[in-house]
């Protein structure tokens, strides 16, 4: 089962509907200070934080947003996870 380890020192904050990943002193050793993500990205981030697997994340997005098409969700989640890996947000 695939699982992901998030970088330490990264905080997800929401201000007036804007979602930001903000790095503290420890997190800035590996990641940019601020990264803007969208609401779905924030949902996925929280799923990763709760140690959900890819299958669980896809299933939970289907439930949360009432979407039937799991193929495209899986593709989008993979793309977001790849983005996080490239930014060192996933260790």
């Amino acid at each position: 089962m695939d699982s992901f380890v998030l970088q330490k020192g990264i905080v997800l904050i929401e201000i007036n509907g804007v979602f930001l990943l903000v790095a503290d002193q420890e997190g800035r050793k590996y990641c940019n200070y601020i990264k803007v993500i969208n609401e779905t990205g924030a949902f996925i981030w929280n799923q990763l934080k709760d140690h959900r697997s890819l299958d669980e994340i896809v299933s939970n997005i289907q439930d949360e947003y009432e979407i039937l098409d799991s193929y495209h969700i899986r593709k989008d989640v993979n793309a977001f996870i790849q983005l996080l890996k490239e930014g060192n947000y996933i260790a």
Binding site: G9, V11, I13, E14, L20, V22, D24, Q25, R28, Y33
Partner: peptide, 12 residues
């Protein structure tokens, strides 16, 4: 340049 989670949340 917030050093801690608390400072980040306070700034928000």
């Amino acid at each position: 340049m917030p050093e801690t989670t608390e400072q980040i949340e306070n700034q928000a």
